[in-house]
Design a protein around this nucleic acid. Structure first.
Lengths: 328, 328
DNA sequence: TTGAAAGCGCTAACAA
DNA sequence: TTGTTAGCGCTTTCAA
């Protein structure tokens, strides 16, 4: 194996100087830096992570404990974060976390035995104050993606409220006045902001909110179906249903099919997430696309001390057949 | 921080003895072992991974480089493997790999800088002889999930051929005699075994294979749609289409809808994978469920020296409305 | 079956 | 700006 000592010999400097170059420390002359870099390249030297960690207290590992709300979301965040880590000489370790009694023990062990240099948290974990507080109290640098409120650590938050307003506006433009909303527990930051955007949209159109048109959901297909049944059973049912995520919207779609309703003729349906399923269902689902890969990459970059340009990360309305009157 | 020295003091033995207990080495008396374990528990001692790796050449990390064929597949394998690792004091590091010129460089860097103790490979990576060979030549222990052929490393392979036979039998039982098949490149082990099962099913029913009824695909929606168009344009089109994965089946489903065909009345459609979308499309897709979480767990266990019971990992026919004549 | 000593490859602290 | 020294916490010899 090639060690730092070999590089030092070849470059004609001390080990410490090589170390300085490797760690991008200041106070290294340009000439020496070049010599060292040349030696590193010539020898194909790769630093030993274990030795660096033992001596320097940095593991070069970022942890991503997740609770699975959607495989696509997890995979995209993971891919974005892993590539961002790799580009900077870091690695990403990910692990599922159950939301039960084992949760804290699992997080503690993860931190204690892996000693990650930072942690990425996504919903629902980043919406749980006790989780965020616990991790932060252990001194772990953390970045929350789409986490709500004023919890510890930094957060990357997109403007879900505005895009939900746009979605509502789109439904209004399609001629809808009675628009149902399927809304999960407000403790989830996303649930709240998406609901707020829905209300904004109604207000903008001069439509009075009707509490009957808002039903609870649990972010899954079954609860979406249940909510849709309740909405469609109303004496004056909505002509459009906006679900706070795609899963629930897909549940609503199934219910509409089962009831023999035309979509969007009898009832228009919109979701949020642009899950792969939303493109293949019939009719294809109008929804909102999140820049999930970019979110993962930005979170990793932030943990590694950078200030990524978040303005490039935008939510996007994806209008498909499920809400388009003049559809295919 | 609690070190091994603290434990040694408390247990009244040497560091080396504590180390022996921690690593389950032989030649330790039961009495000493108990003392040490008690001291470990009392002190809440957790070994320092970096020190262990530096001194002992084990990183306690398993790597899972993946190329994303399906988010659900990746996430499930990852979850199974990560939990299996955690239960044994290991961690899982995963990273996307593009199938381009950067591939080998990425794998080399992963191995060189992370020094994983083993590697899990899934399709399509585990079907690429040059990748498997390269990794194996670096001395990396590896387990391939569903990988084909007689490549390096151990493989966990399920009987996709038999279950594909069962699927074909199901279609025959539904009254079909002209059954189309969408078949990706035979270089993919899964493509070949699924196709073989299809042929077995035809043979069992005394149906002569018809080359016109077999169309190529690329495991994605677009290629499935294209293949379906070709099949349905035939002078004597098939009354059922069996696609080698769900994505292609979903493409076929879209085409059938677009052509105004009744499903399964005019054409029955079946897939393979039981992706989440297969449950929410209309009509719900008949498919085959893979024990993906169990596969990931088994792969990790094998890398850590165990011999997991693979008999519990079974493929399962999931019959839904897309092939059921007497459907909802 | 147990222990003592010598590193693993790097960085922190300090000195020059 | 550069170099020297002393560890980081563990496992590997090897000896008892």
């Amino acid at each position: 194996v090639t060690t730092i000592l070999d590089v030092a010999h070849r470059a004609g400097v001390s080990m410490k100087t090589v170390s300085r170059v490797l760690n991008n420390e200041a106070h290294v002359s340009a000439r020496v830096r070049e010599q060292v870099e040349a030696a590193v390249a010539a020898l194909g030297y790769r630093p030993n992570r274990a030795a660096r960690q033992l001596a320097g207290q940095k593991s070069f590992i970022i942890a991503y404990p997740f609770n699975n709300p959607s495989a696509t979301y997890i995979t995209n965040v993971l891919m974005g974060a892993a590539v961002a880590c790799r580009d900077r000489g870091y690695h990403l370790a990910s692990e599922p976390v159950d939301l039960d009694g084992t949760m804290f023990e699992v997080l503690d062990r993860l931190i204690d035995t892996l000693n990650p240099d930072g942690m990425i948290l996504t919903p629902p974990l980043c919406d749980m104050p006790e989780v965020v507080g616990h991790v932060a109290s252990l001194g772990m640098p953390l970045v929350r993606i789409a986490g709500g409120g004023d919890l510890h650590g930094r957060a990357i938050r997109l403007d879900e409220r505005s895009i939900s307003l746009e979605m509502t506006r789109h439904l209004v433009e399609q001629g809808h006045r009675r628009i149902g909303f399927i809304r999960p527990h407000p403790g989830h930051a996303s649930s709240q902001s998406r609901y707020d955007g829905y209300l904004d949209g109604l207000a903008e159109a001069g439509i009075a909110p009707d509490a009957q048109l808002v039903r609870p959901g649990l972010f899954d297909i079954a609860s979406g179906a249940q909510a849709a049944h309740a909405l469609l059973d109303l004496p004056a049912p909505p002509s459009a249903i906006f679900a706070a995520n795609d899963e629930m919207a897909l549940g609503a779609l199934q219910v509409a099919h089962a009831r023999g309703l035309a979509i969007p003729g009898d009832v228009a349906i919109a979701g949020f997430d642009d899950s792969p399923a939303s493109q293949v269902v019939y009719p294809a689902l109008t929804t909102i696309r999140q820049p999930t890969v970019g979110l993962g990459a930005a979170a990793a970059a932030m943990l590694l001390g950078e200030t990524p340009d978040l303005s490039a990360l935008r939510l996007e309305l994806v209008i498909r057949a499920s809400t388009l009157r003049d559809q295919v």
